[in-house]
C-alpha cells in the first residue's frame, strides 16, 4: 500500500517536518541553505526578521525538555511569531483528556503551528494527520522514532566543517536502541550521500536489523572509530544503567566512553559532536568534550538557525506556488 507523504504538500513543499525518512536530498540541502541565511540574524542589533509576524506557534511538550523547547522558542521569536509554551505531563493526559481533545482545544485558539514533543513514537505523525489543513506540525522528538531538527542541525554543523558529505565516514556511538537522534541522523546522512555510516555500541543498545537503515555495526569502539571524519556521541540515559542493558557506568565508560586515546583512532581532523546534555565521564571524557576537535557548542547555536529554516519553510508551504515574476519583482 502506498501512502502520499504526509510531510509534503501537493507541490512537493515541506508542509510538516516529522521525520527525515521520506524527504529527498534536495529538500535536506534546501533546509541547510535556508539555515545558512538565517544564521546571521543572531549577530544583528535586532535579532528578528518579520517573516512570521502575526503567526502563533505552540510548543506542545508532552515530555519535559528545557533545551529543545528554548531553541524552538527562540527560533520562533526571531521569526517574529507569537509563542505559546504548553507542557502537558503524560500523567495529566492519562487522567482523561485525550491527545485528540487537547488538539481540538488548541485549534480553537487559532494557532498556526505545533511543535510537538512526545514520549511515544509516531505522536507527531498522529497529530499531523488530525490537525486542520492550515496548521503545520514540527516534530520536536517522538519516542525512539525521530528528532529531525536535531539531525538537521547536526548536518549543518558537519557541513560547516566538512562540506562534501559524499566523502564522509561518520560514527554514531552509544545507545542507538532508544535514540531518535541516531535514527534521524542515519537517515539524514544516508540521504545526503555519506560514504559510510557506522553505529557503535554493545549489542544490548543496538536495535535489531538496524543494518536495513544503512549503517555498519561495530561493538568495539576503537575499531569503529578507525578513519572516521565525524564522531557523534549519544547521551546515555541514567535509567539504562544497572539494568539488563548495561552493568555499570564504570564498565560503559571503559568500553564506549570517548577518550583522547580512543579518538586517536579517528582521522586527525575528525570532529566530535554530542546532542547534549553531556554526561561527562560516562559517554565522553571532559578533555574531549572541551577539546580542539569538539564542535558541541556550535551545534547549540546552529539549532536556532535550523529551526528557523524549518519553521519558515513549513509555514511558507501554505502559500500558492509562486511564479517567477512575483518572486523577482515587488
Amino acid at each position: 500500500m502506498t501512502h502520499a507523504n504526509i510531510q509534503l504538500d501537493e507541490n512537493g513543499h515541506l508542509k510538516h517536518f516529522l521525520s527525515i525518512y521520506g524527504l529527498d536530498r534536495g529538500l535536506l540541502l534546501s533546509i541547510l541553505d535556508h539555515a545558512r541565511s538565517f544564521a546571521g540574524v543572531g549577530d544583528r542589533a535586532v535579532k528578528k526578521v518579520p517573516l512570521l509576524r502575526g503567526k502563533t506557534i505552540v510548543n506542545l511538550f508532552f515530555e519535559p525538555s528545557t533545551r529543545t523547547r528554548t531553541t524552538f522558542e527562540l527560533a520562533a521569536k526571531r521569526l517574529s511569531a507569537d509563542v505559546l509554551n504548553i507542557n502537558i505531563s503524560t500523567s495529566a493526559t492519562k487522567k482523561g483528556e485525550s491527545l485528540f481533545d487537547t488538539l481540538q482545544t488548541l485549534e480553537a485558539m487559532h494557532c498556526d503551528m505545533f511543535v510537538v514533543r512526545h514520549a511515544n513514537s509516531g505522536a507527531a505523525h498522529f497529530i499531523a494527520g488530525k490537525v486542520a489543513p492550515h496548521i503545520s506540525v514540527i516534530n520536536g522528538g517522538d519516542g525512539r522514532h525521530s528528532h529531525p531538527t536535531q539531525a538537521m542541525l547536526d548536518m549543518f554543523t558537519i557541513q560547516q566543517h566538512k562540506p562534501d558529505f559524499t566523502r564522509l565516514k561518520v560514527a554514531i556511538v552509544g545507545d542507538i536502541l532508544h535514540s531518535r537522534v541516531a535514527r534521524s541522523e542515519i537517515h539524514a546522512l544516508a540521504t545526503l550521500g555519506a560514504e559510510e555510516i557506522r553505529v557503535i555500541g554493545p549489542k544490548t543498545l543496538i536495535p535489531t536489523d538496524i543494518e536495513a537503515m544503512g549503517p555498519r555495526v561495530f561493538h568495539n569502539l576503537e575499531q569503529g572509530l578507525e578513519d572516521v571524519d565525524v564522531v557523534i556521541m549519544l547521551r546515555l540515559q541514567n535509567e539504562r544503567m544497572c539494568s539488563a542493558l548495561l552493568p555499570s557506568e564504570h564498565e560503559y565508560f571503559h568500553l564506549y566512553g570517548l577518550t583522547e586515546k580512543k579518538l586517536a583512532n579517528a582521522r586527525a581532523d575528525a570532529i566530535v559532536m554530542h546532542p547534549g546534555p553531556i554526561n561527562r565521564g560516562i559517554e565522553i571524557d571532559s578533555s574531549v568534550a572541551d577539546g580542539r576537535q569538539s564542535v558541541i557548542l556550535q551545534q547549540v547555536s546552529h539549532g536556532i538557525a535550523v529551526r528557523m529554516a524549518v519553521m519558515a519553510m513549513t509555514m511558507g508551504s501554505l502559500a500558492d506556488t509562486p511564479t517567477l515574476e512575483s518572486r523577482d519583482e515587488v
Binding site: 522514532h145 536495535p207 536495513a212 537503515m213
Partner: peptide, 15 residues
Amino acid sequence: HEGALGTRLGLPGIP
C-alpha cells in the same frame, strides 16, 4: 514485531 520496520519507526519490538 521486532525487525527492520519496528527499528526504523522506533516502536518497541516483540521478538
